[in-house]
Simulated assay, not measured.
Amino acid sequence: MCARELLPVLGQSQPERADAARNRQKIIEVTARMIAERGADQLSLDEVAREACVGVGTVYRRFRDKAGLLWALIDERERRFQAAFLTGPPAVGPGAPPAERVRAFLGALVDRVVEQQDLFVLLELGAPKARFNGPYRVHHTHLAGLLSEVRPDADARFLADALLATANAHLILYQRAERGMRVETIKSCIDALAQAILSANGPVPT
């Protein structure tokens, strides 16, 4: 992974010393291995430092806390996802009608959450200021912009929040584990809700 500023700024870079870049990469690789072996819920930054053979202070200075380290783990995949809906081919990317792009984006977002579900579940346990920043802010801005084109009569920001709530990692985990829902079924249900919102007539109450 190249050394770049963490989300939510897509593609922006910052200088990083070679030794700092090596330590960052080592910490990320060790963390990914530890999560694959033991799960993410018991992750400790002190243990990560020991396994990566770096000082504890190095880990805390670079990532600040557990949430910062988890964001670094999802950074590269999230950047690819952002590139897909910002500059990629339609219907997720530009070139398709906005209503079609809303539906395609939501389906792709469910796949994105499922891809790293354990990490997203942990990140959702963080403080609201952190949880609704980062990728959520990018997703919300993108979705609200599309919704404002389709439903200029409605509060696009609220509708974006409502639709993004359906891709909540905890909810998807519950639907899959407790209700036995397949990912494709979840996506189909979210798509039906999106279509209802996109085709509704009249203003949404304020």
Rank of each mutant, 00 (worst) to 15 (best):
N201Q: 14
R22L: 11
A165W: 04
L125Y: 07
D65C: 09
H142T: 01
I28Y: 07
A192D: 10
P135I: 11
E78F: 10
L109W: 00
E37K: 13
I74P: 04
R50K: 15
E115H: 11
L7G: 13
I172Y: 02
Q14I: 04
P15N: 02
Q117I: 15
R182F: 08
S44G: 10
E184H: 09
V204F: 15
A99R: 09
I28C: 12
I190P: 01
V59F: 03
P89C: 06
R157Y: 15
R61A: 10
E47N: 13
V113W: 00
L119N: 12
Q117G: 09
D19L: 14
V9K: 08
E178L: 15
G107K: 00
P152T: 07
A108L: 02
G145N: 05
V54N: 03
A99T: 02
A177V: 15
W71P: 08
K129L: 13
R103Y: 01
M34K: 09
V92G: 01
R22F: 10
E51I: 07
V59E: 13
V102R: 00
A194K: 00
L193K: 02
S199M: 08
G134W: 04
R112G: 03
G88R: 01
L171I: 14
P15V: 03
G145A: 14
V92M: 04
T31D: 11
A177K: 15
R179M: 14
V114E: 09
Q116A: 13
L109D: 00
V92W: 01
L119Q: 08
M181I: 06
A3R: 13
L6A: 12
L147H: 06
I27E: 03
V114G: 04
A144V: 07
R24D: 06
D191P: 02
V150F: 06
C53T: 11
I186F: 00
V56W: 12
C189M: 14
Q25Y: 11
I172D: 01
W71V: 15
L109I: 00
K66W: 06
R24T: 08
L193E: 10
E124H: 10
R62S: 12
V48Q: 11
L73Y: 05
A194H: 00
R17E: 12
A167T: 00
S199D: 12
D191W: 04
A49W: 01
F63T: 12
D118S: 14
E51P: 05
A130V: 11
G107F: 00
L70R: 01
P97N: 07
A108G: 03
L171V: 15
E149H: 13
C189P: 06
A130L: 15
E100T: 01
A127V: 15
V150D: 09
L70E: 01
L119G: 08
C2H: 07
T166M: 12
A108H: 01
F63Q: 07
P152L: 13
L147A: 05
V102P: 01
A72T: 03
A72V: 04
L6P: 11
I74R: 07
V9L: 14
A91Q: 03
G88D: 03
V110E: 00
R4E: 10
Q195C: 13
V183P: 03
Q117N: 10
A20N: 10
E47I: 05
